[in-house]
Design a protein around this nucleic acid. Structure first.
Lengths: 202, 202
DNA sequence: CGATGAAGTCAACGATTGATGACTTATGCT
DNA sequence: AGCATAAGTCATCAATCGTTGACTTCATCG
């Protein structure tokens, strides 16, 4: 530090990239907490410590800011790469979606955040795309059988529902349960959908 | 009909109860489609064919209108009454939450509708209350065992997640699947959580 | 030091928001 | 018919919304 800490709250050196990043971070938090409609651009800009006009200079519109701030990055090598046992994959997914802290998104997985603004067509489309084509497609291919796609979506529904119960609803048992407790139960459920039935089906 | 159809679009006879009901119905649809923040009171009033001021005359505020329009009625005799097999109960719950049409709520179960505005504390509290105390409590009591509450919430998560996948996300397989197809899979999953494990657990 | 361009601020726009109170109109009773 | 009351409308308020363009301030280079 070449100069002493200024008495005034740091006026922050002018830096386009840093300001853009600060806006993105503030937007992520606000959109996560309050949804798209419940968040104003002035609110976001105030959190970032700049004027609201910069939102439109850097992102064009509130919609484009949302699209860039809230998006789902599918973890590399989760479904592609060398095949691993499916319960192993769902283990990681369980930790990712349900038990991950996701502090950048106010504690929720971006999928759950997008759920909150899913009535907007753009959000809904991205949500379906990431979930079905990103996560569940390889699931279905690996499962095999006639209703593979359906069973894959049931696994997705379980994990998504658990995330909702934990972070959105705040149900007591799932909120206080440890990862290992739940992991065993989920593994049993996944195995039920994976293994062919021992007894006659219909 | 004592009089012929009027040429002008029916001016609707002045009727407090009917107008209140029309406002409630319009509010339910709009709030379901667009969430609390994305819906304006003028929009609702226009759908009902009256002035927006009546919203405040009849309900006091937009919040109170939402509270009265969107709420979860727990079906009578679902969990209470004479005990039935749990897969039977989840069958009805599956039909209710995931496959019911709920035309009054634009096709979604009110639980899923409330999910869309769950960032508001009032909505979130009602959601947790209805889900945990209304649906899942008797589930947990009936399940028994150490982690009964957790397993009950897993069933709730599955059903809730399926509802989300079907109506909010619009995932293909679950959307096109019939009730009977899914019912068997869900029954298998519930049985997995219900029956004690045959092999050693830990 | 002085100029140049970018980074950031400011003021304002038109539209819309939830909400209020005064006003008008229709309905029902006598 | 005429009056009283409730049902419904209208105008409007103060705030806030997303968005824009002109303006100011800072950093950098010659």
């Amino acid at each position: 530090m070449t100069e002493a800490a200024p008495s005034a709250p740091s006026p922050r050196r002018r830096d386009r990239a840093a300001t853009r990043a600060a806006l993105l971070e503030a937007a992520r938090l606000r959109f996560s907490r309050q949804g798209f409609d419940g968040t104003g651009v002035r609110e976001i800009a105030a959190d970032a410590g700049v004027d609201a006009a910069l939102v439109f200079r850097y992102f064009g519109s509130k919609e484009k800011l949302y699209a860039e701030a809230v998006h789902v990055e599918i973890p590399q090598g989760l479904t592609d790469g060398p095949p691993r046992p499916l319960t192993r994959v769902t283990d990681e997914l369980l930790y990712d979606v349900v038990f991950g802290d996701w502090e950048k998104f106010d504690g929720e997985h971006p999928l759950l955040v997008m759920l909150r603004s899913a009535h907007r067509p753009a959000v809904r489309d991205q949500l379906r795309d990431r979930l079905c084509d990103g996560y569940l497609r390889d699931f279905a291919e690996r499962l095999g059988g006639g209703d593979a796609a359906l069973r894959a979506e049931l696994i997705g529904a379980l994990l998504l529902g658990m995330g909702v119960m934990r972070s959105v609803v705040g149900s007591p048992a799932l909120t206080e349960a440890t990862f290992d407790e739940t992991r065993l139960l989920v593994a049993r459920l996944v195995r039920t959908l994976t293994e062919p039935r021992a007894d006659g089906v219909g």
